Amino acid sequence: MSSPVAGLVNGALEQMGAASESYSFFDETKRKTICRALFDAYYADKDQPVLFDTNRHWTAKMHQLVELFDDFKVICCVRNPAWIMDSFEVIYRKNPFDYSRMFNATNRQTVYSRSEALINAGGAVGSAWTALKEAYYGEFSDRLLLIDYDILTRHPARSIELLYQFLGETPFKHNFDQVDYEESDFDQKLGVKGLHSVRKKVEFKSRRSILPPDLFAKYQDMDFWQDKTGTAAHIIAATQTSDSAK
């Protein structure tokens, strides 16, 4: 689930930006101080040395985060976009008589229009994809760790061990057979039952895609992180020829 902090920071910056009539009341130092204060206020009840804040669009805000925190890192779980689109379509078809807020009357008509709505620049998949691409090739890519879905589900213990190494934290034992999670209230309000439901056991399950072959092929080559040139990002993913973590 995404926390509201990224939205709070972005909203505050809009209010303090040049489009606001209050723009002249703020200088760069004050804007920066207010943005940091939003983090501190939201997590004031958490007396922890390390905090995880979740939002898909932090990857488009790396240039802001580096100004707010001396030591921050961004973890991104990635998967081949074709399978992400497939998963959204699976969930859509599991709710055949519930027209959710994920689509409107125009773009919900077919799998092609639904996929296009998700993958465009403002869609749930497209906006996250472009934000990640910005961070992956950006000047702060060394702060970024990508963990591939297939590797995580096939080798969860090793993947998490490598994650702790990236964070510089001491590992501890996890129970990968008891990680079920759901946000039924949130999903109910969105009209998409099961959107955030996670199976209890971390494991890889092979299945056939329900997307038309041309759609699957269209999105299959969008996993740009397979090309590791031009980035300093850390990656836990299979090579093109093996399943071993790098």
Rank of each mutant, 00 (worst) to 15 (best):
M1F: 13
S3L: 11
G7K: 11
V9W: 04
V9F: 03
L13A: 11
E14P: 00
Q15E: 09
A18M: 10
A18T: 09
A18D: 07
Y23L: 01
K32D: 04
T33K: 14
I34H: 06
A37N: 14
L38D: 04
F39P: 07
K46W: 10
D47T: 15
Q48I: 02
L51I: 15
L51T: 15
F52S: 04
N55E: 07
W58E: 05
T59V: 10
A60G: 12
L68K: 04
D70G: 12
D71T: 10
K73A: 13
V74Y: 02
P81V: 10
W83P: 00
D86M: 03
E89S: 08
I91V: 15
K94F: 02
P96M: 07
Y99E: 14
S100Y: 04
R101I: 01
N104R: 09
S115T: 11
G126W: 09
W129V: 00
L144T: 07
L145N: 10
L146C: 11
L152Y: 15
P156Q: 09
E161I: 00
L162M: 15
L167V: 03
E169F: 03
P171E: 10
K173Q: 12
V179H: 06
D180E: 14
E182P: 01
S184C: 01
Q188I: 06
Q188M: 03
H196A: 03
K200D: 13
P212H: 05
P213Q: 12
Q226R: 15
D227T: 06
G230K: 06
A237Q: 12
A237S: 13
T241S: 13
